[in-house]
């Protein structure tokens, strides 16, 4: 799942899909319109190659395979979740989006359409900016590949590794 994040000093806790779209496409330029300070909005996005950006564009900005939603030309492009956290965490008037596992105290995850970005809300499908990550195999998985997939599905792996940054597969119910 992807969280929309702002600097902790930004007094904003929720934005609607229309507001998000206005901000990320560059139509809205000042935080004042959203109840924030009279400051320019610094939009931070991911680069063209990012899967995070693809899902954000589709699920938050309403892009489809045929209909493109262009991000603001003034948006800062960064190439990783780490850099995104760095920029948003240190720029008081920035907004961006980040893989949920990267959210820490330096940045603030805000609600989308009044739904908080929590593991529970993503799992039930209430928080829409989330997706499945897939594994692909050539034909039916067998041998070591099957062993590896079974290992990833095991309770131990799901609890110890997956739950740290993602949502456990048995908790997920995204349509």
């Amino acid at each position: 799942m992807i969280a929309i994040v702002v600097n902790p000093s930004m007094p904003i806790t929720n934005l609607s899909d229309a507001q998000i779209k206005a901000i990320f496409t560059g139509k809205a330029k000042n935080w004042k319109a959203f109840g924030g300070p009279d400051k320019q909005i610094v939009v931070v996005i991911r680069d063209q190659a990012s899967g995070t950006r693809e899902i954000f564009d589709k699920k938050a900005l309403g892009a489809t395979d045929t209909k493109v939603v262009e991000s603001a030309g003034s948006a800062i492009q960064c190439s990783s979740n780490g850099v995104m956290r760095e920029i948003v965490g240190s720029t008081s008037n920035a907004i961006g989006y980040i893989s949920f596992g990267y959210v820490n105290k330096n940045i603030k995850a805000i609600s989308f359409n009044d739904v908080a970005p929590t593991v529970k809300n993503a799992a039930t499908g209430l928080y829409p900016i989330a997706r499945y990550l897939h594994l692909f195999t050539k034909g039916e998985a067998k041998g070591a590949v099957k062993g590896y997939i079974d290992f990833m599905l095991s309770d131990k792996f799901q609890n110890d590794i997956v739950a740290r940054e993602y949502v456990k597969i048995k908790d997920v119910n995204i349509k």
Binding site: D47, Q48, G73, S74, A75, I76, Q77, C78
Partner: peptide
């Protein structure tokens, strides 16, 4: 690495080289 044209020193932008390396992947 923003895609806008800007003559403002404080605005983000791109050069030819940075755009190539940013998008070639």
């Amino acid at each position: 690495n923003a895609s806008q044209a800007t003559a403002s020193l404080l605005q983000p932008g791109s050069t030819l080289t940075t755009r190539i390396v940013q998008d070639m992947g």
